[in-house]
Write a protein that binds this DNA or RNA. Structure first.
Ligand code: SF4
Ligand code: SF4
Lengths: 150, 150
DNA sequence: AGGGTTTAAGAGTATTTTGTCTTAATTTAA
DNA sequence: TTAAATTAAGACAAAATACTCTTAAACCCT
């Protein structure tokens, strides 16, 4: 699995928030309902994202979470790094420890290439771009597609 | 993690076998020693690969495992598919079930692109090519690099 | 034949990931 | 001020992954 489930849920939620424009908070309960993710599990994931500074939260009625930065300034890479860490982008194809110092293995060139491909895709994709594309082409963000872009 | 540990170990072992030319069997114990992988764990992984037809095994003294096909005919994709399955190459960036039938999500184009990039890299890389490159450039396949290409 | 060597198979354990539940703290609004 | 709503935090449980160990089966050699 390329990304952990927690990470995938984090991406869904972030995309959801980026499309729910308006400066208000969105409650985690509403997100977990609409996105069909376990409420408590999602709460933990979003706590990681708020801890990383990508979101801010507010308690009580009218509370919830929201993105701290504009959607155009949040890349998917930041979200993945906050939840899964950056090991994915440095890990070894053969699982050998301490590489880079010594001579590489024969797989490294190709491996590093695809690894960088993943990172670049995540780095140069931001939330606003996806939200706008979804709105324009009426794409889906939930299983049943029952989500209105605004 | 892109590939499971079992899969990474499977790749290491396969590359090892591809470089240990000669038609004889190589014992799993020797491989686990040289590659620094738990013997019993490696045994199970190689059983999966023999079950998939990529290797054949032989019991008793002089026994062990060997590749069934020539190294040039075994792609990394086959090894990964045999151990981790092909879900990696079809999985969804947002974890949404039943996609493809309905309209896609805004991330799909980019996501499918990098997913295919991973698959293509694995598909058009074969064991012989890696073994020859390793031999020619004296690259490493173990942690300490103490492995003689033949 | 028989004993040593090696893979096969499966039970068992440890760790990580995923998910659930309960309680506490904060905030809004009546 | 009080009650309801909401996130925070942490204990707990279930499932998947990553190993470990034991026993059996096949094989080679003497
Ligand atoms: S050179 Fe090979 S062994 Fe070293 S980090 Fe790259 S893929 Fe891993
Ligand atoms: S279109 Fe989006 S939701 Fe559907 S499979 Fe592709 S990445 Fe997943």
């Amino acid at each position: 699995m390329l990304l952990s489930k927690a990470c995938v849920y984090g991406l869904r939620s972030s995309l959801f928030l980026a499309s729910c424009k308006g400066d208000g908070y969105t409650s985690i309960r509403e997100m977990s309902d609409q996105l069909d993710i376990s409420f408590h599990f999602l709460t933990k994931i979003l706590q990681e994202l708020t801890g990383a500074g990508l979101m801010e939260s507010h308690k009580g009625p009218k509370g919830g979470v929201r993105l701290t930065k504009a959607g155009s300034e949040v890349s998917l890479y930041e979200i993945v790094a906050a939840i899964d860490g950056t090991e994915l982008f440095t890990e070894c194809a053969l699982g050998l420890p301490g590489c880079g110092v010594k001579k590489p293995c024969p797989l490294h060139d190709k491996w590093a290439g695809t690894r960088d491909g993943i990172r670049q895709m995540l780095e140069d994709t931001n939330l606003l771009e996806l939200a706008e594309k979804g709105k324009k082409q009426n794409l889906r963000i939930t299983e049943d597609g029952g989500f209105e872009w605004i």
